[in-house]
Simulated scan of single mutants.
Amino acid sequence: MHGPESSGWLLVALCAGTGAYCLVRMRSRIEEQRRTAGGEALMGFGMAAMAVPAAVTAPPRWAWALYTVVFGAAAVRALWALRAARAARGGGHHLHHMVGACAMVYMAAVMAGGTHSGVPVLTGALLVYFTAYVLRTGARLVPVAAATVAPAGGGRPPGWGDRAELAGACRLSMGMGMLAMLLTM
């Protein structure tokens, strides 16, 4: 992506760290955590790769096409999971995964085209969506963090992959990373 080199590297570190934590979450005892963690790890590492400052290394055009295909497949997978979850009366998080994957497809397609600015209306709509998502996710962290200080029922404390507040922080950081990437469009 384009922008100041120092902020680009900070974004790379944030997204790669988030992706690494999502890999840890794949070992969670909670099935829902395991299901979503793989897609979030893909998003984190993909965002890290896309955020490497262009001044350091300019990826070849085929790399942007590869990102488009990978995140297009992730969007289709999220759509399939959303369809199944809607039948079970749920799936809001799958919708977010689909929007995120489509945003990555959009940014990769713009970069593959050799331009550095996308469709202003679409970029603006994505900025509004991710701003609302970041604000909502950040607001939800406050009560979750207070509620998970002590284990419920005196059981053993949750593992690193099972902590709801860390999963929320992971999603918050990826949302902020997406905002930063969209702002460079």
Rank of each mutant, 00 (worst) to 15 (best):
M1H: 12
A167C: 02
R140Y: 06
A125N: 08
Y133P: 02
P151H: 14
T137W: 04
V52H: 11
R140L: 05
L23F: 06
G168F: 01
S117Y: 11
A63K: 05
L66G: 15
P143M: 05
H93V: 05
E165W: 15
G46V: 00
G159S: 12
A20D: 04
A167H: 12
P4M: 05
E40F: 13
G92I: 05
T123G: 04
E32Y: 01
A139H: 03
E32C: 01
L23T: 09
G113E: 05
G39Y: 09
R77H: 11
V52Y: 04
E32M: 06
A169S: 08
H93C: 00
R35H: 07
C22L: 03
A58I: 02
A65P: 04
T184P: 05
R140E: 07
A132V: 15
V70Y: 01
P53K: 10
G168W: 01
G113D: 05
G138R: 11
Y129F: 15
R171Q: 15
R25F: 07
L82G: 09
V144F: 03
M107G: 00
A139W: 08
P53E: 04
E31V: 10
A74K: 07
T148C: 04
M107N: 02
G90I: 07
T68A: 15
G92P: 12
G90K: 14
R83I: 10
A109F: 07
V99H: 10
P53I: 01
A101L: 13
P120K: 10
V121E: 09
S117E: 12
L14Q: 12
G44C: 07
R27P: 02
P53R: 13
S28P: 11
A84R: 15
V110A: 09
M50H: 03
M174E: 13
W160H: 11
T36S: 15
G3V: 02
M50W: 04
G46R: 03
L182D: 01
M181T: 02
E32K: 14
W64E: 07
A55E: 14
R27D: 10
A125E: 04
V99Y: 11
T115V: 11
V105E: 03
Y106T: 09
L172Q: 05
F45Y: 01
L82N: 02
A152V: 14
G155E: 10
A20N: 02
A152S: 14
G3N: 13
A84T: 06
L14P: 00
R86Q: 14
A75W: 01
Y129Q: 02
M111W: 06
A180V: 10
L179P: 01
H116V: 08
P157W: 05
R156Q: 13
A103H: 00
R29C: 08
M47F: 03
L183N: 07
G177D: 06
G91P: 13
R77I: 03
P4F: 00
A54Y: 03
S117V: 06
V69P: 14
Y133F: 15
V144D: 07
A109G: 15
L23H: 09
A87F: 07
L95R: 12
G17E: 13
A109T: 12
A48S: 10
E165C: 06
M43C: 02
A73S: 09
G124F: 02
M111V: 00
M176E: 01
M50G: 08
L23V: 15
V24D: 06
